[in-house]
Amino acid sequence: MNLLEYTFQQIINAVSQGSMFALVAVGLSIIFSLLRLTNFAHGDMMMVGAFGTLVMQLAGVPFLLAVLLGIVISALVGIIIERIAYRPVRGAPDVTMLLTSVALTYILENLGILLFTSSPRNFPLPDWLNASFNLADGRISFTSINLLTFGLTLLALLFLAWFVRNTQVGLGMRAAAEDLTASYLVGINVNTVIVVAFVMASSFAGLAGVLWAAQAGVVEPHMGFTPLLKAFVAAIIGGFGSIPGAIIGGFVLGALEVLIQSLPSEWGLGAYRDAIVFTLLIAFLLFRPGGIVGVKQEVKL
């Protein structure tokens, strides 16, 4: 394997990893931009989407339809938690909203344990999803899940970009993200805007959950925790509250993680991957809280 091929292989890995982070981070950023809410329960929407898909499959629903229904279920759960948990504390101090989201995380994860036990379950995939592709006589390889992760993320993000530019609710979303109070006063139906934002964020997370489970081969109630933390890092280094920031941050983080892992193993840095990532997060919080795109509102955690 020559250097060019090796680099190309790592780029494939980085793009696949980065897509996943971007998909989760975008949802975090949308919600934060509207409500100043740091939504820890966002990761659990991944779990909901993956378990939703699994249950549908076990009930005999064909795979693609099961995935679609799994995503719909996470969107519905998103609507429900907005209505019963977040709306009552809207406008409360940031810490109140943050603690509400932490409580929700515990409730959702324990519900998951109650329903499915905490042991990981096999996530069955159709054969065509397990296929892998080889280039350059097998020295470069990728799976259909890699391809799908990138392709579906791209579709989701293009849809989001179209939505916020060309629809009335999307326009309201951008207005409310800039000035929530003024949005109420010019007569924007802010509740509709916020519910739609939760639907989008939760279905993106649900999709990410299915992709994550497909890559790992298993689902379990705590599966959303690690990707949530990574998505937070991505959203913050990109610029918390900014959609382009979340996307940039996702791909930067994906590239960084793959880069660390692809360094020569005798350097011994691979084991410190997460430590390096979180050090970077701290550095951004200290020296560039607006992230790469430089959002004006500083991040409070």
Partner: peptide, 26 residues
């Protein structure tokens, strides 16, 4: 809304005079 265009500022206020339901919104 300083980040929105001139046209968008006017459109955003012209919208949603009639409350629309979630399915319509999406």
């Amino acid at each position: 809304f300083k980040e929105l265009s001139v046209l968008e500022n006017v459109r955003v206020s012209a919208q949603l005079r009639e409350p629309i339901n979630l399915a319509q919104a999406l």
